[in-house]
Design a protein around this nucleic acid. Structure first.
Lengths: 153, 153
DNA sequence: TTCATTTTTTAACATTTGTAAAATTTTCTT
DNA sequence: AAGAAAATTTTACAAATGTTAAAAAATGAA
């Protein structure tokens, strides 16, 4: 477990090697809302940006290599360096586009289409992560995912 | 229609007065993915940030008052003014948190819970916008929304 | 007010997805 | 290789949501 809900997170991590998931708790269940592998940045948006306790958990699903960037270091750079402030802006903007795309896709597409997209965009993660995690990320039950996989096969 | 899909958008708008929706096309249908009223910023993330044709449409649902900010002006400010670059960064970061929350909520919650949240957070919009638009925004059919409303009443 | 139009709700039925449990397959350990 | 454990798929049934069409209610214009 890299980041735990309820704590104020004081670091960002760059995932050099490994696979990770971000999840929340719903009642007694866990729900994944993000999956990613190498070269992704790991942080609780909510906790890191607002500097308050977050509701997000991030777990590494493989032995991993990470770089850790302290919150204070980054904030200092932002407030003194124009280039870096704009780097941070563009980073947030590009993440924003990605999340919005995910949000829209979920509204648009059937579970089957979402899974087919996932296969195309993240075939490596499909191999490295349990199907239960993928089903949770796609917002469907594992049974439904199995049905889709049987249908496509 | 303020912003149309397929065009590269060269402005951001601040909504001083009015209600707007952002939507995409799915086959022959329209799907809303955003609803907002006064004091919101209107832009196609995709088109404005990447300076490429976007897939998003933004329509004003009432007579409105807007302030228009040209892309070039904002980019110039970002690249010369540290304060503004950080303002832009924080803006993107806070939008990012909001969209992520929406995304997670959709995964977590039943249609009924989503509607109840909507009533709490945006009671004004509920009064000003047709239920068909709200159903589309909530990712459900208008029939389902009617059923939920009947159940709550 | 009255009539026409639009919006919302209801009804009936089909489809999708979820849940729980069993069966099967895969993986891991010894 | 054999057995145990974990992961995945399948089955059967229940619940939720979608679609189409009709009914009711609300809105707007003359």
């Amino acid at each position: 477990m890299l980041i735990k809900a309820g704590r104020t997170e004081r670091s960002v991590y760059l995932l050099e090697k490994g696979v990770a998931r971000a999840f929340c708790h719903k009642d007694d269940k866990e729900i994944n809302f993000w999956l990613g592998a190498e070269s992704n940045i790991l942080l609780s948006y909510n906790s890191f940006f607002l500097n308050t306790p977050g509701y997000e958990n991030i777990e590494l699903l493989e032995d991993s290599v990470l770089y850790k960037i302290p919150h204070t270091a980054l904030q200092n750079l932002y407030s003194t360096d124009l280039e870096l402030a704009n780097w941070g802006r563009r980073l947030a903007e590009s993440e924003l586009i990605k999340v919005e795309e995910c949000f829209i896709a979920r509204q648009f597409k059937t579970a089957k289409e979402c899974y087919e997209d996932f296969i195309k965009t993240s075939p490596d993660i499909l191999q490295r992560v349990q199907l239960g995690h993928i089903a949770s990320y796609l917002g469907i039950s594992q049974v439904t995912l199995s049905r889709i996989r049987a249908e496509i096969r």
